[in-house]
Structures are given as C-alpha cells and as structure tokens.
Design a protein around this nucleic acid. Structure first.
Lengths: 361, 361
DNA sequence: TTGAAAGCGCTAACAT
DNA sequence: ATGTTAGCGCTTTCAA
C-alpha cells in the first residue's frame, strides 16, 4: 500500500472483502458478526483510513455539495454584506446535514461558460445570488436542469425559477404608509441601482402608495441613486439646493440614507428637525454606529436558510416546480422621521443627531 | 442515451472512440485529422456535453478545488469581516486559475472529525482560517498531509505550518512609538481576546516598546477586552472613573476603540482633547462612519491572496516546507490623538468629534 | 491518426 | 453473514 489507504487496503488488513468494509463503515454493521465489525473498525483506525469523497460521489451520483454562485458583477464578497448574510444562512442549514458549499464565482458573463462552470457534476444543486437584471445566472433553464434557487431578486413569473427574496413591495408599502401617517405630503425619493430588481420594486411601491393616497409625486424630488452611500450624498446635494423642499426623503436603502445624512450634517441641516429621512434594509452599520435611522428590517440570513432548505427539498424530492417565497420586512421606527404635524417652524440645530440617544418621538 | 450526455455518447455520435473525444476536448486536437476534430466538436456541441468534473477528478487525482476551512468557533461569516476579506483575496487569486473553493465549516472541535471533513479527497489543499489558540485546525500535522496554509495567526515555529499573517508586532511597535513621539507618557491599553494569537503579540509589542523607552506601564490602565466594541465601552467605564488617567488609550483593535469612543461621548469626554485613543486594523466602519481614528491599516485581502498563491505553490511543486509571510501594516494618522505637549489644560468640548472633518493636527 | 484497456476508489445489486 | 461483479465517467498509458 502506497499513498493514502483505500478500501482495498482496509479490506486486506481486516481479511475480508471491500464490500464488507464499505458496508460496515457506512453503518450497516448489523449485517455482520461482531468480531468482523471489530476487525474492520480496527483496521480502518490503524490505517487512518478516510473514505474518498470524490470516488463516493461518482459511485453514488450525488456529491453532498451545493454550489453558491455569485453573479459575475458581484463576485467580490467584500462590501457585499448581502451575500455574506445569505451565505451564513445557507451554511446554518447545511452544516447539520453534512453538506458542503462550493463557492462559484464566474468571471465571464457568457451564460454558456458560466453554466459549464456550475453544472459539471460537482454539485447537487445551486443557490444563485443574482440581484441584478440580465445576470447570466438567470439563463438557467436554457443551460441546465440542475436544481436551483435564486436569491436576491423577486423575479417575474416567466423565469420559472424558484426564488426566495425579501418582500420589497409590501415592506416599502408599509414604510411609505407610515410616513404618510406621520403627516408628510411632500415626499422625496432616492432610487436604487437601476439594474437591480429590488430598486424597481421599491420605487414602484413608493409610487403606488403615493398615488393611492392622492399625494402628488414631484419628479424633481425623485433622484437617481445606485445603492451606494455616495449616491445618497449626491442626491442630498441636488435636492437640498432646490428652493422648495420635501419634508421627508425616502432612500431605497440604508447606505444611501446614511450618505444623505452625512451630507445633511455637512450642510448643517438638522435631521429630523429640518428634514426627515428613511432607509431600507436596516444595515448593521446604521445601528452599530448609533445612527437612529427609521427603516425596514428584514432577515437576509433567513433568506439564505430558506433557500438552502428549498434547494435540498428540490434535490431530495426531484420536485423542481418554481416556488416563490417572500419574506416580510419589519418597520423599525427610530428617530430620523419627525411628525410633519409638528413641523410648523423648523428648529435650527447645529448638527444632525446632535444628541445621541435623544428621543424625538 | 438517457440522463446527461457522457463521453461515450459524444463518441457514439461522432463515430469514434471515447479516447479521441477526450483528447480533442482537452485541446489535444493537433493529434487528429481536421474533420475528426470537427465531428467531435459538433457532436459535443449538439449534445450539450459537459465533462463531469467528479469523474475527471477521480481519474486525474486532483480536483482543481481548494478548501477554505473556518475555525469551528468562527464558523459564522457574519460579522467576521476578517474571513470576508481573506476569502475575497483567495477568490481573486483562484478565479483566473480556474480553481473553485469549497467552504468547510466544521461544527465540532474534535480534530479527527474536523480533518475527516477536510482531507477526504475533495480538495487539493486548504486554507485554514484559524485566529484562535487551540483550534483543531492547527492539529494539521497529526491528521493530514494535505497542503495547507494558515491565515489569521502568526504561529510559533513548532507548529511547522505555513502561515500568512499581518505583522502584528512590527505594526504595534510602530504605533506605540508614534504615540510616544507625540509626547505621551501615560499610556493605557485595552487587550484583545485572550485566545487570539494576535492579542498576545500586540500586547507584547506594546509592553516591549514602553519598556524600551522607559515609559512605566501602569497595570491599572491595562484592561482586558475581547475585540468586541462592548468590551471597549466597558474598558472606558473602568478606566475613566479612576482618579488618575492616562493621556492616551491604545486599543488592540478598532472595534474596541470605537466602543471606547462611544462611551467617551456618553460620558462627555472629548477625544482627543481630554484623552487620546488609537485603534488597530483600520476597520472600514471607522472610516466610513467618519470617525477619525488613528490606527494601523493592513491588507487582509492581500493575506488571502498570498495564502492562495502559497497554497497553489505547495500543490504544484509538492514543496511543503513551512513558510512564514508577514505583511506590514501602515500607520494611519487621523485625529484621535492629540500631541501630549499641547495638553496643558484640557479643553472642554461638548462631544467627542463634535466637528466632523475638523482638523486637530 | 486512432483505439483498447486498465484503472481512479467507491457503491450497490445480486449471489452465495 | 460475506463476497462477486459490474459499474460511476473520465484519463492515460500503450499498442495498432
């Protein structure tokens, strides 16, 4: 025996066939006499035998591995907190089931090449993290029949792809309604990245609610952002130099809201006393840095967890019909929105959030 | 042909042997007549053939996959920004080389079980993210001969394990020397998590420099932390109620420094006017949230990148001698440290960092 | 220029 | 209660 010990080596040493060893090592020892079982266990132990999972996968035709594919445009994990949380949820579900994860980060956007990388027998199914429109990952049906679950976008029906996502529409609806209930009628909006599904859904929900409540939408207060904090700051600049201002600005995510807030601080505009702000996502940043941002919290970890669950279900049952699971967000009211009814004469404070924990409720 | 097309299917359709197909599809087409090559290509194309990488791995005895194992204690990625950055560096190196990553998150701390999970033929080598002492991942030599590189800790020689880490000792030395050059002689310290290698190295460097400069170490100013922001806040409480105070407090990482700063804010103690603070790590938080913390920046992405490079080197050359690579940090001077020479009568400001960008240099 | 054959290490019918 | 055998899908000598 040279190299790593194999089943054959163990069998030889235990004086039996490899089938016997295979069976016993897989826990079917009730089939054998006790001393045989002992023999085998000892031999395996002494040789430091470890089953070769590649060979096992080939024989069993399953790998006990699922893939997690990142969209080529977002292949970097850094600053992709989303992928981070989702990955954690996936891990949490998979670990106790002894599945491993294969991280796949294609760098081309040619769908054929991407799918060659994904569907090559090395995984039993794949979670596709694909928040942007036009991702090659969404070409799934043309290239593969591997069980797959999309995460990060609420897809139109016609994709016929199982997906798990936060419910952007209902959450934004809730938030906007709440803002309106605070008495606001002059409402600005900072849009998310135009290629993200979520950006459209959030904006659409925003518009729908305003329409439904008969609140006019002033397009000069609807600004394009890209989900990055800088775009929030830019939006603040564009917006705040207008002669007429909204009483509240709703950003399509927390990062932009934070950028907006920082710009407000620089311009010495008090939040929420002079202008109110809302976010979306409840990024841990805001909370941890003590920025009391009113926002929507949703559980991205849960998204990953459910995605893994749904995927294993597909793998085990073969039931590959497209399912959609939307996770509800929760309104988190902090202190970045003032009641518009109290806004008679805007107070003039030195800085936004000058008193850390001070309640403005 | 049922199921996914195999080499045999392609061969049949092209009217040749599977050897021929295999060769041609691997780019050895110069061996064959041009029309044969065409035949094969067409057949493969038409069938949508994709080589099965499991079978290939078994035959080739290499998997083109490397493992990334997280210490059981840190198996959650969330809030493990370190693993995040490292993973990104690894990905960056691996992608162009067509390696994939297998994420391994053992949940037991039994080394034998952990290594059964890692070294089972499914990977060609492994990056061990193991910042804490006593990690089962460090038992490598007893359980496996797989190429391995440790990341996240500077190990003592006797581990005989290749590792890449930031140079905690030199960086902390540089930072402490700089602080002393600012005139500080009353220096406090917040220690990192006692099980992290890095905590010990940083503290030791701190002590050495003070000794070397003849600056007395007052143990009542040396507080135990755990790298979490809350422990920084606790340290602030303990420290700041003492009758005699240091002029500067050096935290073993940014998170604790931030916790310390927040507590200062609450207690209305101005930084750096009443007390100076330093961090370590240059966490993106501090920067992005506009906290002007003087700290050490180092490139964790680079750590991952080099780890992957070193690992592939080991895999390809078989040269498994332990190597140590330490990456230099850079001193980042912002505005959390005042010159002690100017500290005659401490100014009384309302809040720490009350003016955002205001230069205190 | 092409193909036959012997694995890679394991699993799982099917015998005995 | 244990063993024989035929694969899993591919690579790679070696021979033709």
């Amino acid at each position: 025996m040279r190299g790593k010990p194999t089943l054959r080596d163990v069998a030889e040493r235990a004086g039996c066939s490899i089938t016997t060893v295979s069976n016993i090592l897989q826990g079917r020892s009730h089939l054998y006499r006790e001393d045989m079982v002992h023999q085998v266990m000892r031999a395996a132990q002494e040789l430091g035998y470890r089953p070769n999972s590649i060979a096992r996968s080939l024989a069993r035709r399953r790998t006990a591995t699922i893939g997690v594919a990142l969209d080529p445009q977002h292949a970097r994990l850094t600053h992709n907190l989303y992928a981070h949380d989702v990955l954690d949820g996936i891990l949490a579900f998979l670990e106790p089931r002894d599945y491993d994860i294969r991280l796949i980060t294609p760098r081309t956007s040619d769908p054929a090449a991407v799918w060659r990388r994904i569907d090559n027998g090395s995984i039993d199914g794949v979670v596709l993290i694909a928040p942007v429109m036009g991702s090659p990952l969404l070409e799934w049906r043309h290239y593969s029949s591997l069980p797959a679950v999309v995460v990060g976008s609420t897809l139109p029906e016609e994709y016929r792809l199982s997906h798990i996502d936060i419910d952007n529409t209902s959450a934004m609806t809730m938030l906007v309604e709440w803002v309106i209930q605070q008495g606001h009628r002059a409402i600005g909006y900072i849009k998310g990245h135009p290629l993200h599904w979520s950006a459209h859904q959030r904006e659409q929900a925003f518009r729908r609610v305003l329409e439904r409540y008969g609140v006019p939408i002033r397009e000069e207060w609807v600004l394009q952002g890209d989900y990055g904090p800088e775009s929030g700051a830019r939006a603040a600049e564009q917006l705040l130099r207008q002669s007429e201002l909204p009483t509240v600005v709703m950003a399509a995510n927390d990062d932009m809201a934070i950028g907006f807030l920082q710009q407000c601080r620089t311009l010495e505009i008090a939040v929420p006393d002079q202008i109110s702000v809302t976010g979306f996502d409840d990024s841990s940043w805001a909370e941890r840095m003590g920025i009391p941002l009113t926002t929507i919290r949703h559980d991205r970890y849960q998204v990953g967890y459910l995605a893994a669950q749904q995927l294993l279900h597909q793998i085990e049952t073969g039931d590959t019909r497209p399912q959609r699971v939307l996770i509800n967000g929760a309104l988190v009211v902090r202190h970045s929105v003032a009641s518009a009814y109290a806004l008679a004469s805007p107070a003039t404070l030195q800085h936004a959030f000058s008193t850390e924990g001070g309640s403005k409720q």
